[in-house]
Design a protein around this nucleic acid. Structure first.
Lengths: 187, 187
DNA sequence: GTCTATAGGTGGATAGAC
DNA sequence: GTCTATCCACCTATAGAC
């Protein structure tokens, strides 16, 4: 191994992807470094050559996954020239498949209360990501800040609550209710 | 000790109150039975005479704390004859002091993603509590289900996100944005 | 860079005295 | 019913061979 100079980069990316999936599914405390490295196809010992601690990985993974997920939802991956498509974002984000979290899910929603319990560094990262989304959507739509914040709460909060709920019907009704608050009138 | 037949009931209540506070602050995994029993003024060993497991306590504590918090916010504790006061609920729930969680905070918001990661029993309890709130508010206001669900997302999601955020200004703006979506026009 | 092995700490749950 | 003491499983992080 290690023949390729890119090899370490690829390993790092595999770890980050595995971490995003597992943290979203089980949270920080219930995800072991063992689990992550197994999912990435390696063993425990190799971990600390890529990240200095589990905490650092969590932070890196949060930033990485949130940006990927919003970028992916904001514009068609097959048409990278397209700009910010808010309608597409809302429908992708509030799609019934999102709270199921098969492929991981947005950490802004899946890990809200998990992050609220961590140290200031992680919370700062979360805050910065939220502010980035706020400014980006504001610039794209021209809506005032309060309206956009409310939209973000309906998206992130809606998915978070839908994921906790144990009843398919209620979950769909929740997502529909949020969609209806977002799509028709954009205030 | 144990002279009073009510003594066990009092101990149980002390444990439940301590659990509500600590679970809200630190989540399930970072709250030890040790911590809870110390906060309640006892030691580890006594715990299992009141609850059969940490999981069972979590469930009991969730139900207990959610109902207390909503009952307290819905009607003036000094005037138990008053009915459901939605305006009061919204303002109490979205008060800037709530996300700080000094006295514990609503578990529906503080523990959303924590609960999403637990077993079906806990998620069923959460779902039932949410449905109870939905029906209660619907009956009190006559609004349609979708509108009430959206209101609940703005309240619960708003507090959950505000708690994760690390910036006083943004936190207040979030809470205000949610309040403005709830108070003026009740759709 | 990745492996195996282990140190070192933590916490749920149980046993048994009082 | 509450206490102290302990068992046992788990997990982060490090050491050292390859």
């Amino acid at each position: 191994m290690a023949w390729h100079p890119d090899h370490k980069q690829h390993s790092r990316k595999r770890i980050l992807n595995a971490a995003a999936t597992l943290f979203a599914r089980k949270g920080f405390d219930n995800t072991g470094i063992n689990d992550i490295m197994e999912e990435a196809g390696m063993t425990r010992g190799a971990f600390y050559h890529h990240f200095s601690s589990k905490r650092e990985l969590y932070q890196e993974s949060l930033r990485n996954a949130a940006i990927n997920r919003f970028r992916q939802a904001l514009q068609d991956p097959d048409d990278l020239q397209s700009g910010v498509d808010l309608k597409r974002l809302i429908e992708t984000y509030l799609d019934p498949s999102h709270p199921l979290g098969i492929d991981g899910g947005c950490p802004m929603a899946f890990l809200v209360t998990d992050i609220a319990q961590r140290d200031e560094t992680i919370r700062s990262t979360y805050t910065g990501l939220l502010q980035g989304m706020l400014h980006r959507v504001q610039a794209a739509t021209g809506s005032d800040q309060q309206a956009v914040l409310r939209q973000l709460v309906l998206m992130i909060g809606g998915v978070a609550i839908a994921r906790a709920v144990n009843n398919d019907e209620l979950r769909l009704q929740l997502l529909d209710a949020c969609k209806q608050g977002l799509l028709p009138t954009q205030e």
